[in-house]
C-alpha cells in the first residue's frame, strides 16, 4: 500500500534537518577548525596557528582553576541532586489534598531565569541580606558571612543555587519513573514488616535505578556547564581575583570585547566537550556493569 510520495518525508524533515546541519553539525566541526586559528570576534582573516591555543591553554592558570572549580561543583552537586529530588518525588507521589499545588510550587525555581534567581540569591546572601541578618539575630554568627566575597564561599553559594534550582526538575523526572515501580512489591514488603525506610531502599531505589543513572549523567554535565549562577553571583567578575570562574565563563570572556579571541575560546570549547564526555562514559560503564 502506497502511503505517501517519496519526497514527502524529506519535505517534512528538511527544515529541522537544515537547522541541525547549520546550527549543530557544522558548528561542531567549525569549533575544532577554529581552535587551530587566531580568529577574532569581529571577523577578518584568521590565521592557522597550529596547536598554539592548546599549549597556551595548558599554561593558563585560569583554566586549571576553572577545572578545579568544576571538579568541586560536580563532587557536591552529583550526590545532592541525585538523591534529594528522589526523596522529594516520593514525598509528592502520594495523592493527598493540595499535592498538585505543592508539585507546581516546587517546580517554580526551574521555570525562573538563572539571572532572576541569581539576583535573588545575591540579595539573600548579601552582607546585609536576609540570611546574614537571620544568622545574626539567632546569634549563629557575630560578623556577616562573606558568601559573595570569599573565594570558596562564592563557589559553595553558586552550588547551593544550582541544587536549589534543580530540585524540581529532577523531581519530575523521578516522578515519571516512580509510576513504573510495581505497587505489589511495596505491598509485599509491607506485609513482611518492612518500614518506610527499608521499603525505600529495597523497593523504590532498585525500581528507579536506571533513572538515577540518567539523572547522575544530567547533573554532572550540568555542573560542568555552569555559567549564569557564577556570573550573576559575582557580578560578572568571577569572584575575588577571578578565582571563581567556570570554563563557560572563560569561553564567554574570550567571545568578544577587547581581549576577544575566538580561536582560544574554541580550544576552551573543545576542552569543555572532552571533560563532559568523561563523566558520561564513566557513568555509562558503571550502569552496564551493574546490570550484567
Amino acid at each position: 500500500m502506497k502511503t505517501h510520495r517519496w519526497f514527502t518525508p524529506w519535505v517534512l524533515t528538511l527544515p529541522a534537518l537544515a537547522w541541525l546541519l547549520v546550527f549543530s553539525v557544522w558548528p561542531s566541526i567549525n569549533t575544532l577548525r577554529l581552535s587551530f586559528t587566531d580568529a577574532k570576534p569581529l571577523g577578518g582573516n584568521a590565521d592557522f596557528v597550529g596547536v598554539q591555543n592548546y599549549s597556551d591553554l595548558l599554561h593558563d592558570g585560569d583554566v586549571w582553576n576553572a577545572l578545579l572549580n568544576s571538579a568541586v561543583y560536580m563532587a557536591i552537586c552529583l550526590p545532592l541532586l541525585t538523591v534529594l529530588p528522589l526523596l522529594l518525588a516520593v514525598l509528592v507521589e502520594r495523592k493527598l489534598p493540595f499535592i498538585a499545588f505543592f508539585r507546581t510550587a516546587f517546580y517554580v525555581p526551574v521555570i525562573a531565569s538563572a539571572v532572576v534567581v541569581g539576583l535573588m540569591w545575591t540579595w539573600l546572601l548579601d552582607d546585609r541580606g536576609l540570611i546574614n541578618n537571620l544568622a545574626k539575630a539567632l546569634h549563629v554568627v557575630t560578623a556577616p558571612v562573606p558568601f559573595l566575597t570569599d573565594r570558596w564561599l562564592v563557589l559553595i553559594s553558586a552550588i547551593s543555587l544550582t541544587v536549589w534550582k534543580g530540585l524540581g526538575y529532577y523531581m519530575i523526572v523521578y516522578l515519571a519513573a516512580l509510576g513504573n515501580v510495581r505497587k505489589d512489591l511495596h505491598e509485599a514488603a509491607a506485609i513482611d514488616g518492612a518500614g518506610p525506610v527499608r521499603r525505600f531502599l529495597t523497593v523504590t531505589v532498585p525500581g528507579v535505578r536506571g533513572t538515577m543513572f540518567l539523572v547522575a549523567v544530567l547533573v554532572s554535565v550540568a555542573a560542568l556547564r555552569v555559567f549564569s549562577e557564577l556570573y550573576i553571583l559575582t557580578g560578572g567578575k568571577g569572584g575575588p581575583g577571578g578565582k571563581d570562574q567556570s570554563l563557560v565563563m572563560l569561553i564567554q570572556q574570550y567571545a568578544g570585547g577587547f581581549y576577544g579571541n575566538l580561536g582560544y575560546a574554541s580550544a576552551l570549547s573543545v576542552l569543555l566537550f572532552v571533560v563532559t564526555v568523561v563523566p558520561m562514559a564513566i557513568l555509562a560503564r558503571l550502569n552496564n556493569r551493574g546490570e550484567s
Binding site: F23, P27, A39, P41, A255, S269, M280
Partner: peptide
C-alpha cells in the same frame, strides 16, 4: 547532537550568525 552541550558550539555558532 543531544550529547553535545550547547556551550561547546556557542563560539562557532556566533561565527555562523555573524
Amino acid at each position: 547532537t543531544l550529547i553535545l552541550p550547547g556551550e561547546v558550539t556557542i563560539i562557532s555558532q556566533y561565527v555562523t550568525v555573524r
